[in-house]
């Protein structure tokens, strides 16, 4: 059983939902970034999505665009991100997903990426701009399926396409809660619930929901509908507002603890 499967199984046993955290790797630099992420893992993060910074993040809103730009200014490339995963793996056993646009992976080499990501201790990869139509060129040069390929569904995904997507998915399904880029406000809860129910009928994989979720109330509401909640821009905003402050790791850890509480069963 891989770490992703084990984590969701264990959480299900406790009737908890996963708190999935997205953080851009190398923001503001790799050393500080490692400290921040370690603090978040210790505080109870269930799954880490580690963002590979990219020069042209077309699916991201201003907050993640800026975090990506800071990481790039500090010289963070994919090899540094893999180095960070290796360092994190010595401290935590939570699943780590490489979250990236395609071009940095392509430049690194698809086969080399598969090998090095697994060696570093990554469990999966999510590629924002690679739909199932284009992913075969990537998986064709992977010797095995130990690296999960996390797929996305969205509010525009019709049921028959959900089937196609989940047929080639592994690890978990990332359902995008709403139209737009990361960090936009407002949540269509009814639509999320309907989409998750449709997904349930075509997959047995855990379903995580992300985009535009930031407050404890929103987490509680979304957690009731699925298996995990992804928080990205809310963490990035906290990092941005407190960059360079010595208490930032503690602030992030405290935020993780507060948000994690909302993923516990309502009775507890």
């Amino acid at each position: 059983m891989n770490r992703i499967e084990a984590t969701f199984k264990q959480l299900a046993g406790k009737k908890e939902k996963a708190l999935v955290g997205f953080v851009t790797a190398g923001d503001p630099d790799t050393e500080q970034s490692l400290k921040l992420i370690s603090a978040m893992c210790t505080a109870g993060l269930d799954v880490l999505e580690l963002g590979v910074p990219f020069s042209d993040p077309t699916a991201d809103g201003p907050v993640i665009q800026r975090s990506s730009a800071r990481a790039l200014a500090a010289g963070t490339g994919l090899s540094h991100v893999l180095g960070m995963i290796e360092a994190l793996r010595r401290r935590t056993q939570i699943p780590i997903i490489v979250f990236s646009y395609y071009n940095p992976i392509l430049a690194y080499g698809a086969a080399a990426f598969h090998r090095d990501a697994l060696n570093a201790g990554a469990d999966g990869v999510l590629l924002v701009d690679v739909p199932p139509e284009e992913s075969e060129e990537l998986t064709a040069c992977w010797p095995d399926n130990r690296l999960c390929l996390i797929r996305l569904t969205t509010p525009t995904t019709p049921p028959e396409r959900m089937q196609r997507i989940s047929a080639c998915a592994s690890g978990f399904i990332y359902h995008v809660s709403k139209l737009g880029v990361t960090g936009s406000q407002g949540l269509p809860l009814e639509d999320i619930g309907r989409k998750v129910r449709q997904l349930r009928s075509v997959t047995r994989l855990p379903i995580c929901v992300g985009f535009g979720i930031s407050t404890p109330q929103e987490i509680a509401a979304v957690a009731g509908l699925c298996d995990g909640v992804v928080i990205g821009s809310a963490f990035e905003r906290l990092i941005e507002e407190n960059i360079g402050k010595p208490e930032l790791p503690d602030l992030l850890a405290a935020r993780v603890a507060v948000l994690k509480r909302e993923t516990h069963p309502p009775s507890s």
């Binding site: 739909p131 969205t154 525009t156 995904t157 995008v176 139209l179």
Partner: peptide, 10 residues
């Protein structure tokens, strides 16, 4: 090809 966000695929 079509290297775009899933939201845009449909």
């Amino acid at each position: 090809g079509r290297y775009i966000a899933e939201t845009l695929m449909p």
